[in-house]
């Protein structure tokens, strides 16, 4: 087990290095001068003096290897540079906003699992029946409706027409816990909808697959109660691939909550990213992309390890 974790961790470190390098290359090897590209607005050419200043500030006059060394060094020391817009350190902003994004994602994942696993299992048990058809239709619909559409419609119905909830915003938990949770539930619920569909579909397929396995027949041959067979021998085994996919989906979401945070005015990391892209604030964008990508890789690592714990066969086969 320890050997397996070490191995996976090394792979993760390698992947982080690739990501960091990739972002560096993307910004430095694109045709044209990054400074000029960054400063030009549409067809208006950039002011040569400003370009020169920017090149100096970005260290673009240094040789490429030195720039790369600075890039890596900065990440290792947690220094992600300072914002163009207000001169604040990027790392500080990220530390403040990241927990809010993670809060949305984790809540969404919890909701998705709590509702998706039973729905998928039920659909599998009743495969071909009307419950299966209803769940399958709902999940297709949920998968086909982009989050910002769901979010906008939620606001239209619950905030605008019914006046049940505010249209979004953020209140720290310490200030008003009830309101914090209410405000959290809207973006989290919206993200959960799509995630629910993924979990329900995966659960259905996985449960159907496990039901065909010999060990389920053994469980029946033991004379165990239905509930116990379902819980211990079907769902328990079927959850392994489902959790893997959920973990990967959550990784995608770290970057993908952009839209939800925007819709509900939630001051998370993604909202910060959008405003940074909008202002073309280069250090901010690079910093956020870097942090999210590293988290993405780390999350995949955690998924791999959890997978190995859930399925004891894994650690041997690698």
């Amino acid at each position: 087990m320890l050997r397996y974790i070490t191995y996976r961790s090394l792979v993760a470190v390698f992947l982080v290095w690739i990501v960091v390098t990739l972002v560096f290359l993307l910004l430095h090897l694109v045709p044209g001068d990054p400074a000029e590209v960054l400063l030009s607005q549409g067809s208006t050419a950039a002011d040569p003096q400003a370009v020169a200043n920017l090149r100096d500030r970005l260290g673009l006059n240094d040789p490429l290897w030195l720039q790369y060394a600075h890039h890596i060094g900065g990440i290792l020391t947690g220094d992600l540079g300072t914002s163009f817009r207000d001169g604040a350190p990027v790392a500080g902003q990220i530390v403040q906003r990241l927990p809010r994004t993670l809060e949305v994602i984790v809540t969404a994942a919890l909701i998705a699992v709590l509702l998706g696993v039973p729905a998928g299992t039920l659909a599998a048990i009743r495969a071909g029946g009307w419950i299966d058809n209803v769940i399958s239709f709902l999940s297709s619909l949920a998968l086909s409706t982009p989050v910002f559409v769901v979010g906008s419609v939620v606001i239209l119905i619950f905030a605008q027409e019914l006046r049940l909830v505010p249209a979004g915003g953020y209140v720290p938990f310490a200030v008003d816990p009830a309101r914090h949770i209410l405000l959290l539930l809207m973006p989290a619920g919206t993200v959960a909808l799509a995630l629910w569909a993924v979990v329900a579909r995966m659960s259905r397929g996985s449960v159907l697959d496990v039901l065909e396995r010999d060990y389920v027949r053994t469980a029946r041959a033991k004379g165990l109660k239905r509930r116990r067979i379902l819980k211990r021998h079907v769902v328990r085994n079927a959850m392994i691939p489902v959790l893997t996919v959920l973990g990967l989906e959550m990784g995608t979401l770290i970057g993908g909550t952009v839209l939800v945070e925007f819709v509900f005015n939630w001051p998370g990391l993604s909202g910060y990213l959008v405003s940074a892209v909008d202002a073309r604030d280069y250090p901010e964008v690079v910093g956020i992309v870097m942090v999210i990508s590293i988290l993405f890789v780390l999350l995949n690592l955690v998924v791999d390890i959890v997978y190995a714990v859930l399925d004891p066969r894994i650690s041997l086969t690698r």
Binding site: L26, L38, G251, I254, L273, V277, Y282, V285, S293, F296
Partner: peptide
Amino acid sequence: CLPPLLLALLVVTI
């Protein structure tokens, strides 16, 4: 290795 929407945003930034 990069979350999809992020990559798109990166390209848009550039």
